[in-house]
Amino acid sequence: MINVDIIFKIAGVGILIAVLHMVLKEAGKETMAEMATIAGVAVVLFWVVPLLARLFEQVKTVFRLF
């Protein structure tokens, strides 16, 4: 079983970014809100891409897909 906490970490970052976006929008800093959102998506991508690479690696070895 791979580590499960990454799912909840991503959800946490997502909710944090959503709230941050709203707060920054209320404060009138639109650009900062967009930057924060993009930063959040980048962090989540940073976690997800190696996981995806691992999945493709596993599929390649199991199904001999060379």
């Binding site: 499960v4 970014i17 995806l52």
Partner: peptide, 23 residues
Amino acid sequence: VLRQQRPELAMLLSLTIAVFIFL
């Protein structure tokens, strides 16, 4: 929950769940 505010993160989350199940 994520889909209302941040659809892109919701997609990444569903992708992670799919990868987790397969692994």
